[in-house]
Design a protein around this nucleic acid. Structure first.
Length: 273
DNA sequence: AGTATCTCCTGCGTGC
DNA sequence: TGCACGCAGGAGATAC
């Protein structure tokens, strides 16, 4: 399940293979993603050159002359680079391909089709999906003062609050669980009742967890692989996510699982208050 | 404005 | 082996 570290892993994996290359054609086999892939996109992209691959939150942005291809991997999406000369049989749910002039292929695979591929003319910040996004978690703009100020009066659980992409982008369910464990905060605590000092700790933990996950290539649960098809190694570092009933790595008390906003939430009732 | 609920979709694990 | 079922979940849409 791609979260920010997985998306960044993907970005780093594909950029060197497609930047400054010309798109020969776009092949769409299944247009029905979260929103239909725009009908005119194939004609629009043919002959264009990808300048760079950037990321905003969990959105990948393929910069192309006058605009950007906005790609979201949803729950189950992945992008794979097929280098010139390599053959990879087409699998079920391989919905889209970008073919480049040196025969490199960028292949989009998404069984659940929660992802999207959209076009936005410059500037990308004008796109409704992008413009309402909060700061990048690894930037200096994401800090305790901001979280503290924005959370005053909010009754929503702290976990739901930090997963709100208008507050901060890229903190999905796995990393929200993990960061709250390291920060020692009960995920059910009302966001508006968390002190500035605890937000300082939490911000530090979110940054650390995300940075570490990027370093090791993301978290592979079931089927996430990077653009080279290799798994990420963060799964073995998980402290709470997916470990309900198992002993807390800190105090050995069994971890508790609850649901917050329809999301699986695992925490230690002793270490997280 | 904030909050809760619904929705999209397929693959996987479970129980019979 | 096969079926029905429940569950997972990013995040926009919708309703209050």
């Amino acid at each position: 399940m791609p979260e920010l570290p997985e998306v960044e892993t993907t970005r780093r994996g594909i950029e060197p293979h497609i930047a400054r290359k010309r798109i020969t054609k776009m092949v769409v086999r299944e247009r029905r993603l979260r929103w239909p892939i725009p009908k005119a996109l194939e004609a629009q992209l043919a002959g264009q050159t990808v300048d760079s691959v950037e990321r905003r939150g969990k959105y990948l942005l393929l910069r192309i002359n006058t605009g950007s291809l906005i790609v979201h991997l949803g729950m189950s999406g992945s992008l794979r680079v097929l280098e010139p000369g390599t053959q990879q049989p087409l699998k079920k749910h391989d919905h889209v391909e970008l073919v480049f002039d040196d025969d490199t292929v960028l292949r989009y695979h998404d069984p659940r089709r929660f992802g999207c591929i959209l076009w936005q003319e410059d500037p990308v910040s004008g796109h409704p999906l992008i413009e309402s996004l909060g700061p990048e978690p690894l930037s200096a703009d994401f800090n305790a003062r901001l979280l503290f100020a924005r959370s005053r009066g909010r009754k929503a659980p702290i976990k739901t609050f930090i997963m709100d992409s208008k507050v901060v982008v890229g903190v999905g369910n796995i990393y929200a669980n993990e960061a709250l464990f390291f920060a020692g905060i009960n995920p059910q605590r009302a966001a508006g009742k968390v002190s500035l000092a605890r937000y300082e700790k939490l911000v530090e933990c979110i940054k650390r967890v995300l940075a570490r996950a990027i370093e090791v290539g993301g978290t592979t649960l079931r089927d996430f692989t990077g653009s080279d098809g290799k798994p990420g190694y963060f799964a073995q570092s998980l402290q709470v996510y997916g470990r309900a009933e198992q002993p807390c790595n800190h105090c050995k008390a069994p971890l508790k699982e609850i649901r917050l906003g329809q999301r699986s939430t695992v925490y230690c009732t002793r270490c997280q208050r």
